[in-house]
Simulated scan of single mutants.
Amino acid sequence: MGATKMVHAPIVTYASMLSLLSLCPPFVILLWHTMVHANGSISQTCDYLMQNGLQGFKDIWPKPTATAWKIIACYGVFEAVLQLFLPGKRFEGSISPEGNRPVYKANGLQAYAVTLVTYLGLWWFGIFNPAIVYDHLGEIFSALIFGSFAFCIFLYIKGHLAPSSTDSGSSGNLIIDFYWGMELYPRIGTNFDIKVFTNCRFGMMSWAVLAVTYCIKQVTF
């Protein structure tokens, strides 16, 4: 993809990228702690951190557990299977700067319906209690933070060694490459689009799943 032109001064660009990479993960944990353990009180969380400092922050950071990893793995595999095998119309994206046209299977609405029906069905028939997800949410967030970092490293290496198309390349700067990405359309094989999976299926689909989870937790509290 060649060298990347910066709109702002380099120090502003690097500071912005590094801030997002380093501050978003602890913000997620602090927000979770505030809502779950501090009754939604920001001042209570701030008072706790002022009194306990860095050690206090370490103490409230939940450790990833086997249960959290199992929940993430089951959900991820389920959404990946739906993405690959649910029927859908062929959809062609815009032509890329390198002349490539990405092709997708438009089955997002079907995946949304199947996901929610399955999730509610597992709860209704007593196979799985979604309240468990809420009870382990901090551990899940923690696991996702570390897992996402490892996944980004994988994508960085893949972009160098095995890009999916000619819409790839290095800017010559490790920070920009890691933050911006090495590929425009990273894929595993020919049909599994990674951006569709992470953004639309694993990510945005979880919004609805978590909303249902919170409702069920209130009902079964």
Rank of each mutant, 00 (worst) to 15 (best):
H33P: 04
F192C: 00
E139Y: 03
T13V: 07
A208V: 11
A143N: 00
W124F: 13
Y134F: 14
T118M: 13
V28T: 14
P102E: 03
F197I: 02
F192Q: 01
W32V: 06
F141K: 02
T45I: 01
L23D: 08
Y179M: 10
Y14N: 00
V196M: 08
V219W: 10
H37F: 09
L20A: 13
L210Y: 06
E183A: 08
I95Y: 04
T213C: 03
V36S: 12
F78R: 04
H37R: 12
R101E: 11
T220Q: 06
A80E: 11
I42S: 12
P26T: 06
C152E: 15
P186Q: 06
S96Y: 05
C24K: 04
A131K: 05
N173Q: 09
D135S: 14
I132S: 08
A211N: 11
Y14K: 03
F151H: 12
A80K: 08
M204F: 07
W180M: 14
L86R: 09
F91L: 14
P163S: 13
S206Q: 01
R101I: 15
L109K: 14
N129E: 07
W123P: 01
Q44Y: 15
T166E: 10
Q44V: 13
Y214F: 15
V81H: 08
N100W: 15
V103A: 05
F192H: 02
V133C: 02
F91A: 10
A208M: 12
Y75C: 02
Q51K: 13
I176H: 03
C24W: 08
I60R: 01
T4K: 06
L116F: 11
T213M: 07
F141Y: 06
D177I: 00
T45N: 05
L86M: 03
H37A: 03
P26H: 05
F91M: 14
K89T: 08
C200D: 11
Y14C: 02
M1A: 14
N107F: 04
T213I: 02
L49F: 01
S43M: 15
M50Q: 14
L31Q: 09
K5F: 14
S22H: 08
I95Q: 10
N39H: 10
P97F: 02
V81L: 13
F178V: 01
N199T: 13
A15V: 11
L210Q: 01
Y112H: 15
